[in-house]
Write a protein that binds this DNA or RNA. Structure first.
Lengths: 215, 215
DNA sequence: GACTTTATAGAACTTCTGTTCCAGAGCTTA
DNA sequence: TAAGCTCTGGAACAGAAGTTCTATAAAGTC
């Protein structure tokens, strides 16, 4: 982009537009710029707007009122957000209500809005709020939010939400495939690992992130 | 808010406005709504817009073109983001380069863009990337990002970044004010607490959040 | 100084656009 | 059935707003 030096007036106009946009929620009309910047004629504004558009600072549509849009300004860029439903509370031994496609954001206690890069652009992400100290050894505290990705398979050592069919309950454990059994390692030294038959486990998702807010 | 059922037409209009806003960057004129929704008169749109405004779905300013703003609609709201500079790496005993007002985002290794509510709307927030296990007891892992708020004072037990003047070094510790000394409690049981004179400590910021990305 | 570029004024013009008024259709209710 | 509500159509008006034109300064360039 041709970053030619902007004149004082052009800076002024640009600032005014940004301000107006922020305060009112829509772009100013030419005559409002005239007043707001204490200029004297619409053609003067027209003149400078054309320059600003040519230099890539804004965009307008011909003959359409209030069609100014600011470009690239750091102040108003909004990154694409994804909505992550917090579908439940996870504490040792409690079933986790994993959402199915339809009951996705319906069952949510609340929704997080996160920038896409925080979930690395992954699909089928949900979140659980952690209750209790059942995961301290995984450095996850009471009150933290864990980001989960819905998967049905996992590698050794990954922390996953597991549904134990016969027990009809779900927990968060580290999973290790050993011979013909599955070792489920709790994330708390107070608890012993569990060994179950592979046919009894159904993986519901894996932990892909942790968010903690203090103070 | 009076959540009266919206009629089909009103839904249609609302959707069209949202769409238009998204695609063009400014609100549609009444007559553009007429065309876009295949309606037959401006007064019809006027009629429905008034209802939509009364019901709290949007806001407009009188006699100002394209002044429609959508309210609260879950679908297209982009939350305001703030830019948090990751100003350095914190590992036990390493000085932390706390940014001053001018060198704010200049010294940043990278920038995080976070939704405002993740920093509770706080000002002067920066971030540090954690290197090593010096903070495991605070449930902060190697590779985590800690969100810091620049403050110069702290309460007992808060985790803060402290500048030790005479030693000319900074670390992250929990701080306890005891009689005429300050106890700095490391976040790792391997390390012993340090006692220093209040005049020797300068608090640079406190931890307000932790972000971890796995897998 | 002659010439070009940049910046400014003012007014006129045309189109865009919000607003208003009136009439009527369709529906429900007493 | 009359009354009353919601919803629709069409047209006209007035003010808002983008555009254009001409003239004039000021400042830099040759």
């Amino acid at each position: 982009m041709n970053t030619k030096e902007l004149s004082h007036k052009q800076q002024l106009i640009l600032n005014f537009i940004g301000d107006f946009l922020h305060r009112r929620g829509y772009a100013p009309a030419i005559r409002e710029i005239v007043q707001g910047c204490r200029l004297s004629s619409t053609s003067l504004v027209e003149y400078h707007l054309n320059i600003l558009e040519r230099e890539g600072y804004l965009r307008r549509d011909v003959e359409i009122s209030r069609s100014i849009r600011l470009l690239g300004g750091k102040r108003l860029r909004h990154k694409e957000m994804i909505i992550v439903p917090v579908v439940g509370i996870i504490s040792a031994g409690t079933p986790i209500p994993v959402p199915s496609a339809d009951t996705w954001s319906n069952v949510a206690l609340e929704n997080l809005e996160l920038p896409q890069d925080m979930v690395s652009g992954k699909e089928r992400v949900y979140a659980l709020r952690v209750k209790g100290d059942s995961m301290v050894d995984a450095l996850i505290d009471d009150g933290d939010v864990v980001l989960m990705q819905q998967v049905s398979d996992a590698n050794n050592g990954e922390m996953v939400a597991i549904w134990l069919k016969s027990e009809r309950e779900a927990t968060l454990k580290k999973v290790y495939w050993e011979q013909d059994m599955v070792r489920l390692q709790p994330c708390n030294t107070q608890m012993k690992p569990i060994y179950v038959h592979p046919s009894n486990v159904e993986i519901q998702g894996k932990v892909i992130g942790v968010i903690r807010q203090l103070s």
